[in-house]
Amino acid sequence: MYLYDTTYLRPGSIDEAKALYDAGESPAFLSGGHTLLPAMKGHLARHDRLIDIRRIPELQGIAEDESYLTIGAATRHCDVAAAPVVRNCIPALAGMVGTIGDVQVRHVGTIGGSLANNDPAADYPSAALALDAIFRTDQRTLTAEEYFQGLYTTALEPGELLVSVSFRKPEHAGYAKFRNPASRYALAAAFVAVHADGVRVAITGAGNDGVYRWHEAESALGHKFESESLDPLRADMENMSSDMHANAEYRAELVKFCTQKAVTNQNCITLL
């Protein structure tokens, strides 16, 4: 479990980071590294340079304005979970971040790392999608719909750097997660956010293409925001992923149950 030869670089600015990236043959940005480094240790990835972006000032900090909560891409999970501003304005987000990985992982992992990776079982993508987030990169601004492009895929081009993510403040929101008993990633999880213009329901852990919006649930909840509104619904099995831990049928059931729990619990709840 040793990495292939690599060069560690720590730029102080976005421009410097980009220049270092462009000069590399197979470069990678390094943030928390809790996905990248295990892949590199297992020799399933090889990068000639690792560009550590955690100290770049533009990528730091949590700020609030009237409509949005903006979090710098290099902000660690523990800092988001503990920040009073997050806890006050979107308690479900703070709660959700407090369930990512474990204590040690939260002390290192970052929001940018998680969102740039877009693991189909990660928590953050569902919050970003349900909270109608705006993704700011060093080049452009993207909506969550534009940003997430399927399994492990985002709109980020090679060398494009995620700078910050702005979550639209909801009237209220809830997150419910059913964990994979082995990995502790979500087998299925739902982030439900009520905005002035409607309800957004984002599902992670379950879909073949990663995070997605469950539109039927959104309209049912838009009609009446209570868990019973979802009773007649069935999550679409066609799109559910299937593996040794849960088949599509079970995932569909969990999706519905998590969504109902996210409706009734205005924070974050872990169901297993």
Binding site: G42, L44, P120, A121, G150, L151, N180, S183, N208, D209, S241, S242, D243, M244, H245
Partner: peptide, 17 residues
């Protein structure tokens, strides 16, 4: 090999993708 041993949860989705 490694992808089978370590990537069980992703094999199906990836093949589909």
């Amino acid at each position: 090999g490694k992808i089978a041993q370590l990537g069980a949860r992703l094999i199906d989705s990836t093949a589909r993708k």
